[in-house]
Design a binder for these strands. Structure first.
Lengths: 91, 91
DNA sequence: AAGTATTTGGGTAATTAGGGCA
DNA sequence: CGTGTCCTAATTACCCAAATAC
């Protein structure tokens, strides 16, 4: 079955990233984060994907493998493994 | 193999979309989702339609195509009346 | 038949979406 | 270029009551 991806609201993701909900919406609009739309037009985000982003799996030195976490986040149906690219937050 | 003719209760659909059961009822009232009414007046939703809605909106990175789309979502006997097409650009 | 859990209905407050601007 | 804040409009969430489903 699914990995049990809970869906988070923009406000939840925004609080997790310490940004404005508007910014989260922009990430979804830019395709930097997967988003599920409700019939009403609102967006929902996958908890597993947000967590993966929060883990800081952005770009790390290839000689700096994560020796502890090993999230092993498994997007079930159709989640996209974000290989690399940009780092939201730009910190 | 069932094509997904299983009927879901508003609470089930609400949990899938991370919304309130009341919101699901509004979707049915707005014709955004097919609904079957019980003789008592309660609504029931088709599992296949709900799943199609959940995965159908999956946006993916342009350079990250989903390896296995295979939605295999049959429109079933009564196709979904997509009446929510009236969204000209903005609001 | 009785019970509990869920759903329904209407109304109001909070959040979200979209665009433009700083 | 990215983020934050402004606006308006739409959608959603929670309150109450009663009815229905199992």
């Amino acid at each position: 079955m699914d990995t049990g991806d809970r869906l988070l609201t923009p406000g939840e993701v925004a609080a997790l990233f310490r940004v404005d909900p508007k910014t989260v919406t922009r990430w979804a609009a830019a395709g930097r984060i997967g988003s599920i739309r409700t019939p009403g037009g609102h967006r929902r985000f996958r908890e597993s994907e947000v967590r993966a982003l929060l883990e800081g799996e952005g770009e790390f030195d290839e000689d700096n493998p994560p020796g502890g976490p090993a999230p092993a986040a498994q997007p079930g149906p159709s989640a996209a493994p974000r290989a690399a690219g940009s780092r939201p937050g730009g910190y």
